[in-house]
């Protein structure tokens, strides 16, 4: 178990370094254009060069990379271009916290729903219920978040007036905040339901066909307890892994949803930074999302290993 966890940690560290290189390289394809973007198309070349110099965009690529990574390790992602002088980190934590709240609400809604749906589909394998759940999950999963979001706004915010169409800047009570988060969360639930339900269905099917289930049934255990004690418990194992990967995806996939609902999370932070060509802010946001994703995947791996002796004892490597 110790060695397995250590190995996973090592791999995650390497991946994170590579990720930082990818993010840095992509954002530095055209370094000269930053000064131009700030000063506008009519500024003279000398001023553009001066601004680039001041922003530390003059040195060779590797030097700038180490500058950035050195800062990023101590959680200093440089200063925002948009809000001149303000460090990126100031904006980052607030946004991350807001996104985490939205992600948590989404998961609280989607996990029980999808697990129940997936298990139900597996128990009625091949019949209409299975078809409907699987097909609904698939179609919802591939419908873009803003498409579901726009329909939700038209029906529940404008038509019925149950929830606000966009998230206000301040809330009068925590209940109001929760109410504002419902529609963005539901549009994310729609995307995630399919993936998680599919895993839960596959896990349940595997557990239903397993020897231990047959043994439990044959020794005369009531069907209800067979389901609860043997089938569902084993079916949840692969589901944990997919929930963690989807939670990481959520943090980035929030990009579109948060923009649609004006929700001030990390997705909208990256979006506003992209609109304003605020590259330090963008890089900080993107690398944070990547790091959080990797942390969650790592957590899921360790959790699955801890729950599954086949991985824990090293019989099934990789």
């Amino acid at each position: 178990m110790g060695r397995y966890v250590l190995r996973r940690f090592g791999l995650a560290a390497i991946t994170l370094v590579l990720l930082s290189m990818i993010v840095f390289l992509i954002s530095s394809v055209l370094p000269g254009s930053v000064g131009r973007a700030i000063l506008g198309p009519f500024a003279d070349p000398q001023s553009v060069a001066l601004v680039n110099e001041q922003l530390g965009l003059g040195g060779p690529l590797w030097e700038r990379y180490f500058d950035w990574v050195g800062g990023a390790i101590t959680l200093d992602f440089g200063d925002s271009y948009q809000y001149r002088g303000a460090p990126v980190t100031d904006f980052l934590w607030d946004a991350l916290w807001r996104s985490a709240k939205l992600a948590l609400l989404t998961l609280l809604l989607v996990v029980p729903l999808a697990v129940a749906g997936g298990a139900m589909a597996a128990l009625r394998q091949g019949r209409t219920t299975d078809r409907v759940i699987s097909l609904a999950g698939l179609t919802l999963a591939v419908t873009p978040e803003f498409v579901t979001g726009v329909v939700l706004i038209a029906v529940f915010a404008v038509g019925l007036g149950w929830f606000p169409a966009s998230v206000p800047a301040t809330f009068s009570s925590p209940f109001d905040e929760l109410r504002a988060m419902v529609l963005p969360a539901v549009s994310l639930v729609a995307v995630l339901f399919g993936y998680i339900a599919r895993m839960a269905r596959a896990g349940t099917l595997e557990a239903l066909a397993a020897d231990y289930t047959r043994t439990a049934t044959l020794k005369g255990l009531a069907w209800g307890s067979v389901l609860r004690r043997h089938v569902l418990r084993n079916a949840l194992l692969p589901t944990i892994a997919v929930v963690a990967t989807q939670a990481g995806y959520l943090l980035g996939g929030l990009l579109v949803t948060e923009t649609l609902f004006n929700y001030p999370g990390i997705g909208r932070l990256v979006y506003t930074a992209a609109k304003g060509r605020d590259i330090p802010m963008m890089m900080g946001g993107v690398i944070t999302v990547g790091a959080v994703f990797m942390l969650l995947t790592l957590l899921a791996d360790v959790l699955s290993a801890w729950l599954n002796p086949r991985i824990r004892l090293g019989t099934a490597r990789d």
Binding site: L16, L255, V289
Partner: peptide
């Protein structure tokens, strides 16, 4: 394989946005 895994740690739309901002 390592490079691919690192790239896949980010949602495609996020990396695409990053690229589009710097390339145009």
């Amino acid at each position: 394989g390592r490079l691919i895994e690192a790239l896949l740690a980010l949602p495609v739309i996020l990396v695409a946005l990053l690229a589009l901002v710097s390339i145009g």
